[in-house]
Design a protein around this nucleic acid. Structure first.
Lengths: 328, 328
DNA sequence: AACCGGGTGGCAATCGGTTGCCATTAATTG
DNA sequence: CAATTAATGGCAACCGATTGCCACCCGGTT
């Protein structure tokens, strides 16, 4: 079923069919209705590539994640997917395997096949990112680069809440368990942590970096214990869950001997043992907002940006992995 | 950067450039190398839609899942993604939201934009599936329909192992906690369960159907207790984890009073509390295999199918949610 | 009667490749 | 040496839409 079949069937030119379908006001009502009826009857679906070729619009958005198995992205993907479907767009999912080069390469490759991209946890240097954003509509998630629109989850604020929480429980020695150095969010969280600690005249220790997988949790747990801290705030929940497991293995009581606070509130954070105190991030919402920003941008290309940044609030969800500091 | 720019630059016709890039043996070595060098230099990336338009190949595969937030799919997505990237193909992710109509609709819509599709947990009636498979290369996962190639995880065999395990622990009253009736796997597991029980002269009870989310676990847990069974085998881990939680809430000891066995071994199954005894399914492998089958099929269109079905073995992973039957 | 302008719809170019077919040239063979 | 064949590369049609431009029709003005 092509536009030509419909044209032949209804006795009009292909161009008229095209218009009847995409700019209905450009064609007479009766002609239009005849064409639309025929299209419906023949179950016509426009060929995406043909359309893309001439119009330049692919109605497809790429979502780049650094690791498709990281539960953090589950929500993001879901949110993005929802919003995209609502707009009739498709989602191209790309896993960059935590590699900046691969990310760059794949970005280049799909550049012409999508209308825009959403970069979740980009590992790209700021410079590269700017260049790409200049030639392709981009929205980043949890990454703030000048002149690139972005949605960031306010985990720094959350980290401060976490520190307040821990300090009020009597903790004085609190460590930050760091994630990948190339992660923008990682640095932002660490800065927030130091600031929050300084407010109480305390200094934060930092251990890491560690990979963001549960298995890295073992190393991280040992390192954390070694600092002598009575509480740890971790880069993300995956790491935190790994730490909890290792601590259990070593017979360390959580929160009796040490408190652990995660970040993101991913799937599993509420049923691990003990259930994890963590910063609940509106992940799905982040996905939706990112898509909205992107689509909005696409519709108003050339106009001055309405809003470049959206900051999404987080809140601390207290479960059982945090408690009063142990008495000395 | 189009093929024409390269043609102009190297002084050959566009068609020659095209050949140098896609059928290198069709052009002289020195010409070819000159063209390839130029392409590399200009960082040329062929336009996917243009290529698709004329050749019919999009180098894109759609993966339809019934719910993008179900952790079961993450392994699948990952495996598929890996294998696709290796072949230089892209992944279009589609969430059918558990609706057969939506699935059918979206399938129709992307039909022309992909080379083939992988249907994970299709909700489509067998009839519809056959029709679609006839006009579009399809591989199903966990669904066996005549004349449609598929990869199925042998959970029925796993269910039998689970039953053996429970029976050997002294359980006599075992219930199956069912998932969606439209799920092929659900029925297959239930059949396996009855067979395995019958072998020991026992009859299985069945409760459900329940939705496959943790929240459905509450209802399921109550229903399960109500059967008086000392053990339950659940449709999947998500449900099982939900059940564990509800049982804990009600103060029911697992496995002291009742044993619970899940299915799939998703993320979280090993750190919920108690850690879940479950059927470990090679999910990622399933994704890889599904892609391989599809790509293989694409390469040999028209030839008789090499293999229509791949059965992947599962094994029982015993953790702490199963134990000896309580004494009466 | 001549003119004007809005509403319609067709023509044809275009997007960027792919591919069948043919012309040219070089190499091989009887 | 003529004839056949293989290698190479250009021409042009084509994939299925979109879109700028123009022609035509018609009713309304002066």
């Amino acid at each position: 079923m092509t536009i030509n079949d419909i044209a032949a069937l209804t006795g009009v030119a292909a161009s008229t069919v095209s218009r009847a379908l995409s700019r209905p006001d450009r064609v007479n009502r009766v002609t239009r209705e005849r064409i639309q009826a025929a299209a419906r009857e023949l179950n016509y679906v426009p060929n995406t590539q043909a359309r893309a070729l001439s119009s330049g619009r692919t109605e497809t958005v790429a979502l780049l994640v650094s690791d498709a198995t990281n539960p953090f992205y589950f929500g993001l993907i879901r949110g993005a997917q929802q919003q995209l479907r609502a707009a009739g767009h498709a989602l191209l999912l790309i896993d960059t395997e935590d590699s900046a080069e691969l990310e760059n390469h794949l970005l280049h490759k799909v550049r012409r096949s999508v209308d825009g991209v959403i970069l979740a946890a980009s590992r790209l240097p700021e410079q590269t990112l700017s260049v790409i954003a200049a030639e392709l509509p981009v929205v980043t998630v949890n990454r703030n680069v000048p002149r690139v629109r972005n949605v960031v989850i306010d985990s720094p604020d959350g980290v401060m809440q976490a520190v307040e929480h821990l300090v009020s429980l009597g903790h004085r020695a609190i460590a930050y368990v760091a994630g990948p150095p190339s992660s923008w969010a990682n640095e932002a969280r660490w800065r927030a942590m130091r600031t929050a600690m300084a407010r109480h005249g305390l200094t934060a220790t930092r251990v890491g970096p560690f990979g963001v997988s549960r298995s890295s949790g073992s190393v991280a747990a040992d390192a954390l214990l070694n600092t002598g801290a009575t509480a740890g705030v971790t880069f993300n929940d995956l790491l935190a869950i790994g730490i909890l497991r290792r601590l259990a293995e070593r017979g360390v009581d959580v929160p009796g001997e040490i408190s652990v606070v995660g970040c993101d509130d991913i799937f599993g954070a509420d049923f691990c043992s003990p259930p994890l105190t963590t910063l609940t991030a509106p992940i799905e919402q982040a996905g939706r907002v990112a898509v909205s920003m992107l689509l909005d941008h696409l519709e108003h290309l050339g106009e001055t940006a309405s809003r470049q940044t959206v900051l999404l609030p987080t809140h601390l969800t207290i479960r059982q992995s945090s408690g009063p500091a142990p008495r000395r």
